[in-house]
Amino acid sequence: MKQSTAKNNQNSKDQAKKMAVTEAILFSKGDPVEIKSLIKFLKISPAKFSQILSALKEKYAQVDSGLQIVEKKNKIQLVTKANLGLLVNKFLGQSLNEKLSAATLETLAIIAYRGPITKAQIEYIRGVNSSFALKNLLLKGVVERRENPLDNRSYIYEISFDFLRKMGLKRVSDLENYEELSQKLSEKVKNGDFSENNSSAKK
């Protein structure tokens, strides 16, 4: 009995240390950090790491903490709390979010809920050319693009960590109606190519 409590003590000490190391790395890096590389560095299982991450988040959830963790896919970033945004900004004197046009916001919404997504798929939903809005979003850094692994003639677009930070979101799924809107209506919409699908289905 005594032995096992000693072991538990050791375990929690170990976990506390790893939590501290994780925090230190996230702080010093500033940028998003890959979870995989943290797991590898700490030499722990993914399950153990998510325990550490939850513990960190719990700590930051306290009112007397000004920090939070933002997540996207397999990366995490240590940032300040969104509800302190205006106050922190007052001190830093950085520029606030500039107003976005309706077209830009529409494009951004489609990327946020449906990304990663191609330009053709965005334009299928909007029914209008979206090059300008996309360029604008890329410039603002709230959207990033990479080559489409399925078709190297096109790019796929998705939201960036800066999007989450500027929107005050911890993760993209915290968006309103994310469950409903992220669901692709049908394969047709996803492919953004009706006519061919239809004709081939009929044959």
């Binding site: 240590l78 969104a82 945004g85 979010n97 916001l105 960590f161 989450l164 929107m167 005050g168």
Partner: peptide, 11 residues
């Protein structure tokens, strides 16, 4: 949401 300026700053 964008106009609320709930910006989370990073280092």
């Amino acid at each position: 949401r964008w106009q609320q300026q709930r910006i989370a700053f990073c280092r």
